[in-house]
Design a protein around this nucleic acid. Structure first.
Length: 571
RNA sequence: CGGGGUGUAGCGCAGUCUGGUAGCGCGUCUGCCUUGGGCGCAGAAGGCCGUGGGUUCAAAUCCCGCCGCCCCGACCA
């Protein structure tokens, strides 16, 4: 490929609306161009990267025994009503109508459609197991799309679905995908860590996310270096702390005028935040529930939802708070709330807590010297692990302290169980002629997000540093003197030889000054740069430099050795 | 959806407070010059100042509505 025949625009300055490096670089290097919030055009360079990541995904899915299919983006509403997700997906799902007013979903994922499809084909255990996959555009009406491809309304996803006869067999399918994912991310030049995760809206019992560690990541992950435990903060558990508060005297009401937040009240009273019990009223499927946690901690709503076995859970509105507790937010507490039948649950760190400070259920008052056992109606079985893990919390597996890092979720594997196969009655006949529901797994990779994660993990102040396997072109040949016949012939012959042997190469044949060309090459981040110029040829050769090396490491080789030297630099 | 910011040439921005015929840098085009890390000189093209209304002799600028984009939040009492 000749640069002058390509369609490449690079920008000298960062786009004004980009925040994180990978987003800025994708735009500056001419990989993509914004259409509107959360919507992108992939330009030729970006498309080449996207295609290379897809190729790796396909090869590894195929190697793992998965079979490629493609399903419609436009999906009849009936499928989604069968699973109940037509309602539960809410405004996250784009919807459309045809001329006859039939409802459709723009596929945000495809469990329903694939289950219906497999059900129609599989009758016998003899046909199982089977794993199918597609690489298809997905649509999600994100609350707030951001950071370029990190969270967009339309994105390319690889989604795979396994169907098995039994849970044990499904575990094998899950592990095959798990291993394939490790290979995929590794081949993309990414360090991706599998972490335990909650299953969210998809449902199911057990899952792992694959995360690329990056400050710009949207998820928090708890790591234990000692035993290797890694879990999304939504899921991460800590060892139950023991509470050895000494006995305290009688409760005492104190005025705390105007102080609402824990920080304000603790400042007002001159007491550490951890001495407080933070009490929140949640609306749980329409009924109020009070949740108590230590003052310096935050409620983990995912854990809370599971513990309460709730369908829908959100913070209560002002009315509900007032009716349940007798006070407005800021003065709520577990001691004698207005609604005497109010269920109160508490974080397990508060089991046996004494001498704590709580809201008085009366505006602008708190109570100190509270003994939760003595002074509240919290039932022993209503203490549970309900908070978000913090740095330094003790690992539930091994007892050592954990650390928190941030990650970009690039993949997710689920053991789904029979949630969808039950809903669709997707059954097969066993060898003793019984009907049995298939056991399912599902497995996603954000292909377009992975492209950006690669950049986020591999760039420097000059631009992107592509791993060779996914670079838009593996080699750029800088023709420094396009008007010089000898130089141009040398550059073009080298291009032809490399292309013949399967190396992706672009020749920068623009009539630009060398500085411009070098800046662009660094910005776009071609793994290997080859310089062919009149001066160099006279001096005996061409110059080869890897993007991840600095100038002092470049090599000068005779023209006849160039091809071999370039290939060696690519490894 | 709530809060904040922002919208002026392809890109990055100034001008808005204090109303008076729209500017800078980059990029683009022409010519000369230069040629190993975003050269230099000269010239040129390119803007319904997001959009609709209002105030005014006069609006990028003031007022009202709408829209787009970005950030934070959308539960932490």
């Amino acid at each position: 490929m000749k640069w002058t025949k390509s369609f490449i625009q690079t920008l000298r300055e960062d786009p004004g609306d980009a925040e994180i490096d990978s987003h800025k670089l994708m735009v500056r290097a001419g990989l993509m161009k914004k259409v509107a919030g959360g919507l992108w055009t992939y330009l030729p360079l970006g498309m080449r990267v996207l295609n290379k990541v897809q190729r790796i995904v396909r090869e590894e899915m195929d190697r793992a025994g998965a079979l490629e299919i493609v399903m419609p983006i436009l999906q009849p509403a009936e499928l989604w009503k069968t699973s109940g997700r037509w309602e539960t997906m809410g405004p996250n799902m784009f919807r459309a109508k045809d001329r006859a007013s039939h409802d459709y979903a723009l596929s945000p994922t495809a469990e329903e459609m694939v289950t219906e499809m497999v059900k129609g084909i599989v009758n016998s255990y003899r046909q199982l197991p089977v794993t199918v996959y597609q690489i298809q555009w997905k649509f999600r009406d994100e609350i707030r799309p951001r950071f370029g491809l990190m969270r967009s309304k339309e994105f390319l996803m690889k989604d795979a679905y396994s169907f098995d006869t039994t849970l044990e067999a499904a575990d094998k399918s899950y592990m095959a995908m798990f291993e394939a994912y490790k290979r995929i991310f590794s081949r993309c030049g990414l360090k991706a860590y599998p972490v335990e995760a909650d299953t969210g809206d998809i449902g199911g019992k057990f899952s792992h996310e694959f995360h690329v560690l990056a400050e710009a990541g949207e998820d928090g992950i708890a790591f234990c270096d000692a035993c290797g435990y890694a879990a999304n903060l939504e899921k991460a558990e800590r060892k139950a702390p023991s509470c050895d508060d000494p006995a305290c005297g009688a409760m005492e009401v104190i005025a705390t005028p105007g102080a609402k937040t824990i920080a304000e009240v603790s400042g007002f009273m001159g007491v550490a935040g951890s001495a407080f019990v933070k009490s929140l009223i949640y609306n749980v499927d329409g009924r109020p529930v009070m949740v108590c946690v230590e003052g310096h901690r935050e409620v983990n709503e995912v854990k809370l939802k599971h513990f309460l076995n709730a369908k829908k859970l959100e913070l209560a509105d002002y009315d509900m708070v007032l009716r349940a507790s007798g006070a407005n937010a800021g003065s709520v507490g577990p001691v004698k709330p207005a609604d005497a039948s109010l269920r109160i649950v508490a974080d397990f760190a508060l089991r046996g807590a004494k001498g704590r400070i709580v809201g008085a259920n009366k505006d602008d008052y708190h109570i100190k010297n509270v003994d939760l056992d003595r002074d509240t109606s919290i039932k022993p079985e209503d203490y549970a692990d309900l908070t978000i893990v913090q740095s330094g919390d003790i690992c539930a597996k091994c007892g050592k302290p954990m650390i928190i890092k941030r990650g970009i979720e690039v993949g997710h594997v689920f053991k789904l169980g029979t949630k969808y196969t039950d809903a669709f009655k997707a059954a097969y006949k066993t060898d003793d002629l019984k009907e049995q529901v298939m056991v399912m797994g599902c497995y996603g990779i954000g292909v377009s997000r992975t492209v950006q994660a690669i950049i986020e993990q591999s760039h420097d102040g000059n631009g992107i540093i592509w791993p060779a396997a996914v670079a838009p072109y593996q080699v750029v040949i800088e023709n420094l003197d396009p008007d010089d016949a000898e130089v141009t012939r040398t550059a073009d012959e080298l291009e032809a030889r490399l292309e013949t042997s399967g190396v992706d190469v672009i020749v920068d044949d623009r009539a630009e000054r060398p500085g411009v060309k070098f800046k662009d090459a660094d910005l776009i981040g071609f793994p290997v740069r080859v310089v062919v110029g009149a001066k160099g040829l006279k001096a005996g050769g061409i110059e080869i430099k890897r993007r991840d090396e600095d100038k002092s490491q470049l090599k000068i080789v005779p023209v006849v050795e160039a091809e071999a030297a370039i290939k060696a630099a690519l490894v």
